[in-house]
Amino acid sequence: MMRWLMTTMLMLTIVLPGATAQAALVADLDQKEVQISTDFNGAELLLFGALKLQDDDGIAIVVSGPPKSVAVRRKDKVAGIWINTESATLVGIPSFYHILSTHPIDDIALPLERQKTRLGYNYIPFKLQSGSRIDEGDDKEWREALHRNMEANGLWGKDVGDVRMLENALFRTNVVLPANIHPGQYEVRILHFRDGMMINEEISMIDVVKSGLSSGIYNVAHSYAPFYGIFAIVFAVGAGWLAAVAFRR
C-alpha cells in the first residue's frame, strides 16, 4: 500500500509539469553571499542551471541590486567654468542592473513581454523625489543621462551572448559584480523565452555584505561619528610621534 502510494506520487511529480506545457527550470549560483572585505576588488559568480530548450529559445538573466536614491546633476558653462546648475533626485533606482542573455533582447522577447517582465532600462521606474523637478520635455535627456552614467561606472549593463547553452538542456554564465557595488540583496531573475513569450521564471538571491575590518570601520564612522573622529586624531598623533621617534634626526 505504502509503496503504491509513493510510486503514484513520484509519477505525478514527473507527469504534471509536462501536462501544463511548462519545461522545468532549475538554476543555482556557486555562491549566495559576497563579502566586501578589505581586499575586495569585485566578484565573479557562476550561475548555472538546467531546462528544456528548443532551438529558437532564449534566456535572459536580470541581476538587480538594492534600490537607491540617485542625484543627477547637469553642468553648464558659467563664466568660463563648468559647474552644476541643475539637479534632480530620483528614487528607487536599482544600484545595479545587468541583463545577461543568449541573444539580443529584442530578438527573444516581444515588447509586451519585455514590459511585463521589466526587462530593459526603459522599464525601470523613473521617479522623482518629491520637490525635485525636471523641465517638461527634458525627461528623455535626463533618463538617458542616468542610463549612460550608470553604464559608465559599470553598475548597469547589457551583456548579450554571455549566457551559453549546452545541448539544449544546460546553461551557464558568469555574474560579474564590480568593486563599486553597494551592499544589500541582489535579485537574480532567470527568464526563459519561447516565441517571444516568457514561459518560465526562476529567482535566486545573492547577499552582498560588508565584512571584516572595512565593514567595522564604516559602521563606526557612521554610527559613532564623534568617537571615530577622536580615534582618527589619536591614531594620527600616535603615528606622527612614532615616525618622529623612528627617524629622529
Binding site: V72, K75, W82, N84, A145, L146, M150, A152, N153
Partner: peptide, 16 residues
C-alpha cells in the same frame, strides 16, 4: 578640469 567641456554634462551621485 573645470574649463574643458566635460565628456558628459551629466553626473550622478548615488545617495544612501
Amino acid at each position: 578640469d573645470v574649463v574643458l567641456t566635460p565628456d558628459d554634462l551629466f553626473s550622478l551621485e548615488i545617495l544612501r
